[in-house]
Design a protein around this nucleic acid. Structure first.
Lengths: 194, 194, 194, 194
DNA sequence: TATGAATGAGGATTCATTCAT
DNA sequence: TATGAATGAATCCTCATTCAT
């Protein structure tokens, strides 16, 4: 059986797609390049992904699952939220957005061309869920008194935009100083200082 | 909007390119489509823009000039900045980002693929200039006392990311409520409330 | 205007398609070969025929129109049919089948793979019409007394099969002797001798 | 039907090839489809037939052997031919042509593209032999007086064309009525009625 | 012997660009 | 200057064949 090798090859092709789609966009990326980057032959790409579009789709959808899991995660439930936990959560969000460079670049590519990619629907669903999640946090924070008076919707919109933007702007890999800057500014969107 | 232009055909082709490049990206947009959208014949596009790439370049660079002008603009100079004027400036920034949908979509397309487009340099220069501009504002605001203690760099980074993000996230045309939300959250990044 | 040239080019491509599809079948014929045979460049084929399939379709359908016209033609109407006129008609049929070598070869290719080509419907319609036409002739011939007692349906089936077969069997260009042989045998299917 | 064959897998692959080549032609038929139809794995096809072309060749040549045997067969020798025996022979011919649908479809595919398949030579040899066989029959029939004055060559050509045509025209399975029609018309080519 | 993953040559099609009118 | 036919490079995808298991 050649199956154990298969899974590895699929992953290599997937990673190559992730890298090149992120770097050059969908149309400019060729299967030939992906094959070369993955260290496989041209035809092998089609063994694992029926079409170029399917590979791209996978590069959008599969990271999204990981993303969902980590963005909406609060230890011990929302009801036990405290200010330190919120700060940690925000820190994790910023880290995640700065880490997942390629995946987010592809997602932005899709968002930027909503007419063109049907995957946009899954992205919208995620954005909606995240938006509600943030609103809940703001409400709880206000109720518990560790967040100032705020409009939960406004914070939700603003925070989502902000996170999206930090990945957009900086093309080089993030450094510690920058990361801290982003975390501090994120806190301000919730009305809290350092 | 951009430059005053005697030749109307050039402008129509330019606008068609702006629209379609924003909608579908560089590679997916064809000259034929642009010609159709502009209401000119196929070959005429090449009369006004030597190559497809040149047209795209124009769609990136020309709006940037307008953009620079309006983003870095403070009436009566930075030294006379006051809190109301800052609020107005921030309001203008948000409005501008929400208005210039197509232009910013193209710019984001370029930013998202820095290896691919040399225009990125001009964009970087603009980002740098804007970044410094915001830092200066923060410094003056703190000195004059209408801004709280802040790290000017952090505010600069955060604000730029934030503005970029608000254009990225919302694909439909902005409404008043959303606009206000974005403006209010922008103030928070400067450490000031409503 | 380049239109006058256009029509000629289209015809050249069409003829090249006719020849090569007839010679090698649909799949084995490449656009490259057609272009070469037509003396045009590769891309020009697509200027005149959107796809390879469209070109093939044209090679099936367009000759069929000519074919219909000449196969179902009786001067002065069926009611005035006489034995000499019938003999002439049969002679014309045989001539037509022997002349239209390429066109019929393509039609046979389609008939041989009815699941594959939707054009088969038009062919079936023609076959039906021709079948009825022959039956009418037999009925009139019997009524007028210049044809012996026959089953019109049987003659129709047999004659249609026969005509189809004479094109199938002989790959080289027909000679006079062969042509006469086929005409004489065709008469026998109607129950009449030389 | 063809040869007795010890290896059942070979036979299944062969039959699958026969069916699919007949249905879709050479190029459109894939090894994968043949494997699926035969119920074997992809690679197994190559165990029994070195190449796709070899399998196709087998699908042309092997039925031809059976065909030869049954088409040229006269019980008790040509010298003892009588009218009833001739009628029986013609009936057998028609039956055989109507029965061997797939095999004949492939053969017609080859005949239709003589430049493309070298197997055409074997087919030509068979056609020549059959042609002579029919001529001999006509000569004997005339000598013995049960056939009218005819040109043996003409009958040979016509009869061969006719048989070929009956297979070509009717795509659905033959019924009794149609079969009888074809047999009756075949007799007419020999100058004899029902 | 049976399998099916890997390979890459070959083909249809797209589309930027050229250029004759 | 405006047009759109002509060109062919570039790309996705198919599929026969090979070969390791």
């Amino acid at each position: 059986m050649a199956k154990p090798r298969s899974d590895q090859k699929r992953e290599e092709i997937f990673q190559a797609g992730l890298k090149l789609f992120a770097q050059n966009g969908y149309s400019k990326t060729t299967i030939k390049e992906i094959a070369k980057e993955a260290g496989v032959s041209f035809g092998t790409v089609f063994t694992y992904f029926e079409t170029k579009e399917n590979l791209f789709r996978a590069c959008v959808i599969e990271p999204l699952a990981y993303f969902k899991e980590h963005m909406l995660e609060v230890y011990e439930g929302l009801d036990n939220l405290t200010l330190p936990k919120l700060k940690e959560l925000i820190g994790n969000h910023v880290d995640l957005f700065l880490e997942m460079e390629q995946e987010l670049r592809i997602i932005q590519y899709v968002i930027g061309q909503p007419h063109r990619f049907s995957e946009i629907e899954e992205l919208d669903q995620f954005a909606d869920a995240f938006f509600l999640f943030i609103q809940d946090i703001v409400k709880i924070g206000m109720k518990k008194g560790f967040l100032p008076e705020s409009d939960p919707q406004e914070v939700g919109y603003g925070y989502l935009a902000y996170l999206s933007g930090i990945r957009l702007i900086f093309t080089d890999h993030a450094n510690v100083q920058l990361t801290n800057a982003f975390k501090n500014q994120a806190l301000r969107l919730f009305g809290i200082g350092k």
